[in-house]
Design a protein around this nucleic acid. Structure first.
Length: 357
RNA sequence: AGGCCAGUAGCUCAAUUGGCAGAGCACCUGAUUCCAAAUCAGGGGGUUGAGGGUUCAAGUCCUUCCUGGCCUGCCA
């Protein structure tokens, strides 16, 4: 992994703010006809698994090719679960390592830690005054999380979508890749923008929701989304032996009782993993052999383990190299933080002026 | 700030008058099975939120604190 100092992005001239000479009412600030700016965040919770990789990291790697990207490790959001301080710090570092090892290029995209850019919090406060309780009350994720951590329903959890809106709009991002579960939050962000612009004049672009090509990766139990808290995950940094051990216990077609029974790959969770890690020809072959009982589930799992390792192995090795060079990680994050803050400050200066602070 | 209620295994809860801390689910191991599931057999797991006190003996009674919930009040 190349850890040289990141340079200014070539597209830095886009999204410039209106100066005093400009006429804001005729000028949609932050809008760039040439290149869309993307903002996306990921929470530093637990350790990375292949669900995170397929759902978020891989997307980032693709997005940085086409867009001006701001990628953030959102530790302020993670705080809603009150992690141990040293664990939070470790999770942030490990996530940065995972992001870089997966192929996000810090020279191409701005990679930074949310809390290093205090403007996120500042804009979130302003936005919270633009947000109606009734709207927040409707957020299904808040209700879900409230059930999940019933002993810690804090206000941060409630205003989470407001901070999320600030995350995006502090960079005047016009596109946001989100999974199904985040669409509602994005709608709220757009609502906040409309309200703000309506009251104070055109200031923010209304971010467009880009449906993330993020598969909903099921856990090894085949019952729910892959997550560390459910203990049904395949770790991104896992050794192949560990992964095979977990795969051996993974749920398959419950109707395929004997080796000679024909299988149903279309309902088999393990087969669905092949779709992510094996090429099309292999997938077809495996499916056909499973249906005809030419291969057993163990064969299928071994094949998968091999293909999984082809993806996971190089990432694990790059991660090892990065871990050995903490200074470089810090430098990348600091540089990313500086670049992010420069943009965030511009936005915040304008917001202060607009709202009368 | 005050009042009331609650806290027991990963989860949901039980434990008689103060008398050996338990069950279900989950988890792990073995049998079986190509693997998993199902079934059967076995197993690990606890500072009973924390400290102090009363007692031969405290999950249980007293006390202080912590956490969470509900109610009343005060300030900005």
């Amino acid at each position: 992994m190349d850890c040289r100092r990141a340079t200014e992005p070539p597209m830095a001239q886009n999204h410039t703010l209106a100066t005093k000479k400009d006429h804001p009412s005729q000028h949609q600030l932050g809008y760039s006809p040439r290149m869309s700016r993307i903002m996306s965040g990921i929470q530093p919770t637990g350790s990375l698994h292949i669900g995170n990789y397929l759902g978020a990291l891989l997307n980032w790697v693709r997005l940085q090719e086409e867009y001006e990207c701001y990628f953030s490790i959102v530790d302020l959001h993670a705080l809603t679960a009150r992690p141990e301080p040293q664990e939070l710090r470790l999770a942030v570092r490990e996530l940065a390592i995972g992001v870089l090892a997966s192929g996000v290029d810090p020279e191409r995209a701005v990679l930074f830690v949310q809390s290093q850019v205090p403007e996120h919090s500042e804009l979130a406060w302003v936005f919270s005054c633009m947000t109606q309780m009734g709207d927040l009350n409707r957020m299904t994720q808040f209700k879900d999380k409230s059930q999940f951590q019933a002993d810690n329903i804090n206000a941060g959890l409630f205003t989470y979508p407001v901070l999320q809106a600030a995350d995006i709009l502090i960079y005047r991002a016009d596109r946001v890749p989100v999974g199904e579960d985040q669409v509602q939050h994005l709608e709220l962000a757009r609502e906040i923008v409309r309200r703000f612009n309506g009251i104070y004049g055109q200031t923010f672009p209304e971010p467009i929701v880009v449906p993330a090509k993020a598969p909903r990766v099921m856990g090894l139990d085949g019952e729910s989304k892959m997550s560390k808290s459910r203990g049904n995950e395949i770790g991104l940094f896992e050794e192949p032996e560990e992964t095979m051990k977990k795969l051996r216990g993974a749920k398959t077609d419950p109707q395929r009782l004997r080796r000679n029974d024909p299988g149903r790959p279309e309902i088999c969770n393990v087969f669905s993993y092949h779709g992510y890690f094996s090429d099309a020809a292999t997938c077809e072959q495996i499916a056909a052999d499973c249906r005809s009982a030419s291969i057993g589930c163990v064969d299928c799992k071994q094949s998968l383990a091999g293909n999984l390792e082809k993806v996971k192995g190089p990432i694990r090795e790059r991660a090892q190299e990065l871990r050995a060079n903490q200074g470089a990680i810090d430098e990348i994050l600091n540089e990313g933080g500086n670049r992010a803050r420069a943009v965030a400050k511009e936005t915040m200066d304008l917001v202060r002026e607009r709202v009368g602070l």
